[in-house]
Nucleic acid binder design. Structure first.
Lengths: 198, 198
DNA sequence: GATTTAAGAGACGGAACCGTTTCTTAAGGA
DNA sequence: TCCTTAAGAAACGGTTCCGTCTCTTAAATC
């Protein structure tokens, strides 16, 4: 901080650093993330980063823990379709936030971030897949959708389409798109007996 | 080339350079791809690269053109399920090749590669989406699946699940997984009238 | 064989970044 | 108020990479 500026300490500084990580991830992507860049963006010294984290990787893992773990909540309305539309709508809201965009970018970089894979998959990917699976399972338990509807691919189909559309196709999604994904892909999948077990 | 080594010229050299791009993409990802690295891997001088391509980005776009554009072929057996299983199986074969792995990594980096987005989406993503849509459309034409089955999300559901499973979840797929994707997600989607248009 | 072209090696000046250190001094607590 | 702690600025030696240039000489062509 230059003369007259306030120094931040402890939690306050860490929050600012996590914010900076997210902003730098958004701009540079994981492959080009640097301590230099994060420090500059957080307006702090590199030494302050190195006092806490020994590497950029460690810093990102901490940011994942602190800022990227909380999955979207799925309601329990008694209707699987309604619950999924609302939950995926919230996933879209997350995707449209800075942290959500950073998450998407980070997920795309996972093949090249071995040190990050475990943390990201456990903290970002799995809880979100579990929330979808739980929602569908409630429908199974209510007799609303077919027994056995919860499979890894069925549970992943919604999130896969959302991330694929945003990350790979480069398209922005609308609330209507969310409904289309649910109505065209996910609901048929949970209701129709699959070919070989049907 | 050191004394005694053979110099390559023209096409031969370009092929070696494209190979090197793919290998470097596999190892470093797009974010950390360097002219220095490609040149070293191709065992050529940077000047030879710069004689042809003014930037790493231009080199990658050329590699996409030359090595990554050919989509998988889908058969026309008279059964949508069969065609999709074979076609997605070929997509999986591609994914298990060096170029295919490089493609996946490149797709994950697209948010951070503005200069590459257009080329990658037009040459890698769209032809493959079109091949799936064409396959499903043939089923529509044969009266095998429902009219209106070809929607962007239905057509994307297979590729989205394949790339999501590999790239985001970090899991290797098997031929059995391909069949599960088709049977659990894609076939129900093409056969069941969607909620709001049903 | 002679000539032309471009491939490959190596060097260059400069930029960016790493991880570390020193120094000053703003916070926080006693 | 005094003392302690750590934040921030700046510098450091070293590495990697960039884009370019020079020189030698391997290919290709006539």
């Amino acid at each position: 901080m230059t003369v007259g500026q306030q120094r931040r300490r402890g939690r306050l500084l860490e929050d600012a650093i996590h914010d900076a990580v997210i902003d730098e991830l958004l701009q540079a992507g994981y492959g080009r993330l640097t301590m230099e860049g994060v420090a500059a963006r957080a307006r702090t010294a590199k030494a302050s980063l190195y006092r806490r984290w020994s590497s950029i990787e460690e810093l990102v893992i901490d940011t994942v823990d602190r800022r990227m773990t909380q999955p979207e909540e799925y309601p329990d309305t008694g209707s699987v379709r309604e619950d999924l539309v609302v939950g995926f709508g919230r996933m879209l809201d997350t995707l449209n936030s800075p942290a959500g965009r950073a998450i998407a970018g980070l997920l795309g970089a996972l093949p090249y971030a071995p040190g990050l894979q475990k943390a990201a998959r456990e903290r970002i990917v799995r809880p979100r897949a579990q929330a979808v699976a739980d929602t569908i399972q409630r429908g199974v338990d209510r007799g609303e959708v077919r027994p056995g509807a919860v499979t890894p691919f069925v549970a992943a189909s919604g999130p896969a389409l959302i991330i694929y559309t945003y990350l790979i196709q480069g398209l922005e999604l609308s609330g209507r798109d969310i409904e289309d994904i649910v109505d065209q892909v996910v609901m048929p999948a949970v209701q129709v007996s699959s070919f070989r077990s049907g």
